[in-house]
Simulated scan of single mutants.
Amino acid sequence: MAKVTVWFDGSCPLCSREIALMRRLDRRDAILFVDAAAEGSVCPIGRQALLERFRAREADGPLLSGAAAFAALWRAIPLLRPLGLAARNKLVLKVLERLYLGFLRLRPASPALAASRRLC
């Protein structure tokens, strides 16, 4: 049974590529990946809200978003677990959240950027 559920935007080529990498790293099947853009996907909040920010939930914990959600994902993957544990520090999480917010500003252009660099 998955310990972490993540909701991602499967219509975003960059997001899909990143999730594909996370799936390969999840050798223990500890993560349930849910494409929030797919018809019929179960969403704990409105679909649009899920598509606007990366969301995750550890076990039966609260719904997390942004850097906190990435940290939950990282904690479920042994290779990335140290980074996820470091993000439990409020200062580290604050820095990661600022980086994530910067990415969100660039995200509308990211599919074109990814395609131009052959990431998708």
Rank of each mutant, 00 (worst) to 15 (best):
L85A: 14
F54Y: 05
I19V: 02
I31M: 00
F8V: 01
R28E: 11
R88P: 02
G84L: 04
G84S: 03
C12L: 05
T5Y: 02
A30Y: 00
L14G: 09
F8Y: 09
R105A: 15
A112W: 02
L101M: 09
F54S: 05
R47I: 07
S110K: 01
L99H: 09
A71V: 04
L21E: 13
L73M: 09
R27K: 14
S65Y: 08
V34H: 15
L99P: 08
F54E: 03
V6M: 13
R17C: 13
M22D: 02
A115R: 12
D9K: 07
S65P: 02
L106E: 06
S16H: 12
A36S: 09
G66E: 08
G40N: 07
V92S: 11
L83W: 12
V95I: 13
W74D: 00
A2H: 04
E97M: 00
L80K: 05
L73E: 00
S116P: 08
R28F: 05
V92K: 12
R118S: 06
R98I: 11
I31T: 00
E97I: 01
N89A: 11
I45T: 13
M22T: 01
P82V: 04
A56C: 03
R118P: 10
F33N: 04
P111G: 05
P82G: 02
